[in-house]
Design a protein around this nucleic acid. Structure first.
Lengths: 187, 187
DNA sequence: AAAGGCATGTAAGGTGTTACATGATTGT
DNA sequence: ACAATCATGTAACACCTTACATGCCTTT
């Protein structure tokens, strides 16, 4: 019953296909030519992932013949795919997410805007900021721990700054998006 | 001849063992209880990696019998291991490193202080700052690109802030460490 | 003529995750 | 009596990377 969650790459594919139907090659190119490349774009990863998604009924490919060029399969999201994506996007952010899956978090945020209602986006950002705060609190004590070299301390400082920066970003994003939202008291 | 580079986990193990001889279990615990956990610490990863390192002659394990508890293998670095670590730590930072391997970079910095001379540490930080700048320049134009949703723009903004923060950190670290260094003009 | 882009795909190889197995000791 | 900690390890499984294969078209 409980299907194990798909990989980040898989959700990235799902998210891009949701925004507009795309071929495997176009998806690869998107990864290779934009900041999305963090989520990888080698043919050996993309094509098998797409076939797996199609087998699972989350996307469907239509062969498009164009001139004499090799025909391409253009994929579009099925309703089951849309639901799977929504299920991945919906849960509040945990401390584990904040500590170990920053990229996945940013991918989720980037993909959720047309799929989740504003209230859930707001919850995402709120729990993200709170989880980062919690995580920072849990690792900040290491700054004064014994046995840390000066380099280790500096590295940890960089990590903490990154985390605090992201928490601040989440709060700022919340305010900005909040201003666009109706049905909620302005601050 | 050209051995493919080891994984990040492998170098994390090498670096910890270099600081003090440790058993596989102690290494796992270090990963599980400190901010190092990003580099993973499951038994299924750590023990096989240690055996591989020993087969390759980079570490050597000595069995320590203690009371009736299961004896443990305490590993120490060999000279070949120290050289492998140094070779990994030495190269200047590339734009690829800055774009895709931030964690590996911070690990390198955290581990290099007793293994590289100050001039090489300085070069690491200098090239790190420069590479991040280059990468930022290459992706900043996407902020104004067409077809970006407001969420994608915000996500990219967060990424850019993180990068700029790390570049600033590298420059700050350079100055701080520079003050400790002799034989160089003070600024 | 060669190189590179479009377009899909497979094969080999290594790495990681989760879960389990073992067995003694220490804490509740 | 049960759980947790010390301590090492294996098995199953999935995943990714790199490299290659194929074939047509366009550009240099």
């Amino acid at each position: 019953m409980s299907v194990r969650p798909l990989t980040t790459l898989t959700y990235a594919l799902l998210g891009l296909i949701q925004q507009a139907p795309l071929s495997g090659y176009a998806l690869m190119k998107t990864f290779q030519t934009t900041p999305m490349r963090q989520y990888s774009g080698s043919p050996g990863a993309v094509y098998p992932a797409l076939r797996k998604l199609e087998r699972g009924g989350l996307i469907r490919g239509a062969v498009e013949r164009q001139g004499s060029l090799r025909p391409r399969r253009v994929y579009h999201l099925t309703s089951r795919g849309r639901e799977a994506l929504r299920r991945w996007l919906s849960p509040p952010v945990t401390v584990e997410d904040a500590a170990l899956r920053e990229r996945e978090l940013m991918l989720r945020f980037a993909l959720m805007d047309s799929l989740l209602p504003p209230a859930q986006v707001d919850r995402f950002l709120k729990t993200m900021a709170a989880s980062i705060d919690d995580y920072v609190e849990s690792i900040a004590p290491f700054m004064d721990a014994a046995g840390m070299t000066s380099h280790a301390t500096l590295a940890l400082e960089s990590g903490l700054e990154g985390l605090r920066g992201r928490a601040a970003w989440a709060r700022r994003a919340r305010r900005r998006l909040g201003n666009r939202r109706r049905g909620r008291k302005a601050r």
